[in-house]
Design a protein around this nucleic acid. Structure first.
Length: 354
DNA sequence: TAGGCGTGGAA
DNA sequence: TTTCCAAGCCT
């Protein structure tokens, strides 16, 4: 049996040589040439990009990264921001606990670490929103420490390189061991980005470009013809469908009735329309007595673990409406649809379009 | 520890 | 249309 660990130095050299030529230009990335010239990444920008990239594509992150770094150029700037401004700027990116933890983390860095990110894996791991992957990513990319990143890309690349057919997530420790054995002491930051770039571009889930892969020769899955079937994953449960009502009330002067959702749970900390519970058979719960009209078109949206169909009800907001507990009256000048999470913005778009 | 937690693009 | 999945973390 071929032992790829004996070839580890050669393997890391091969993928680094590939990365030197094919590294994508990304707004948060220091190119391999600039790195070689001694330019160091800004840990704040690496951290911000890595949190945004959790379960999120590069294409979706780019504009958000630019807006955040323009508005808050340093971690101290971000730490001093208002909660609602950060949540509004994150709106549309999803997994909103990331934004709440981002702000928590920035404030810990500013207050307890003098504005400087810890430079060790263990120090980073203690911070809100930083788990094993992100701690390893910041350690390696920002500080050039030989920590092993294990994200979905690296899992796929390792499962194929070693032809491991044990299913995820159970095989994760084994994949981590394989990935760690390959992590070099030389250029660990470039190496981490190289393996992830390889997974994101050539070693793709459905149709890997094995013919032009720098690891095509040693790859045991390519040799065995099993690459596209790896990594195996335990099957997922089907998504149920839930229903609900949302209530859009606008005053003659343009004011809107909104609510700030509680910090915990779905869409936590985000703005939203008042509404019913989301269940199989939700009872209507209008925020105040009025002649509510059914907009006629439903909002359809899919979350991580269920489908949602929302009935959109509209009426005029009384001029003297006394806001109930938890309700916000937002003036036309302060209301920006882009501050809403996508499912809530869809309801607004329907209202606007009718 | 397994489930909660968004969104949009690709196939 | 549906399914898969993307630089995961938290509880």
């Amino acid at each position: 049996m071929r032992d790829l660990n004996d070839e580890a130095p050669g393997l890391s050299d091969q993928i680094l040589a590939w990365y030197d030529v094919h590294a994508r230009a990304l707004p948060w990335r220091i190119s391999p040439a600039d790195r070689a010239a001694g330019i160091a990444p800004d840990p704040y920008r690496i951290w911000l990009s890595e949190v945004m990239l959790q379960q999120t594509t590069v294409a979706a992150v780019k504009d958000y990264f630019h807006r955040f770094t323009t508005r808050w150029p340093t971690v101290q700037d971000l730490a001093a921001a208002e909660d609602g401004d950060v949540m509004g700027e994150w709106a549309g990116l999803g997994y909103y606990a990331r934004a709440r933890n981002l702000l928590k983390c920035a404030r810990v860095i500013a207050k307890e670490h003098a504005g400087v990110f810890p430079s060790t894996y263990d120090g980073l791991l203690k911070l809100p929103g930083i788990g094993p992957y992100t701690a390893a990513a910041i350690s390696s990319i920002a500080y050039d420490l030989p920590e092993t990143v294990l994200d979905g890309n690296v899992e796929r690349v390792m499962a194929r390189l070693y032809n491991i057919d044990a299913p995820l997530p159970g095989s994760k420790p084994l994949l981590k061991d394989r990935a760690a054995a390959l992590t070099p002491d030389r250029r660990p930051g470039d190496y981490a980005q190289a393996v992830m770039d390889l997974g994101a571009t050539l070693c793709s889930p459905k149709s890997p470009a094995c013919g032009i892969c720098p690891w095509r020769d040693p790859c045991l899955a390519r040799i065995a013809g099993t690459a596209t079937a790896l990594p195996q994953k335990t099957p997922k449960k089907p998504k149920p469908t839930r229903r609900g009502h949302v209530y859009l009330a606008r005053a003659a002067n343009g004011d809107w009735l909104l609510e700030r959702r509680p910090d915990k749970g779905l869409l936590g900390g985000m703005l939203g329309w008042p509404g019913s519970e989301w269940s199989e058979t939700p009872a209507p719960t209008p925020p105040f007595e009025s002649d509510w009209q059914d907009l006629g078109t439903e909002v359809r949206h899919t979350f991580t673990h269920f489908h949602l169909i929302l009935q959109v009800m509209v009426t005029e907001l009384p001029t003297q409406f006394p806001p109930a507990e938890g309700h916000l009256r937002v003036s036309v000048d302060d209301f920006r649809p882009s501050d809403l999470p996508t499912v809530m913005r869809k309801a607004f778009d329907l209202w606007q379009g009718q």
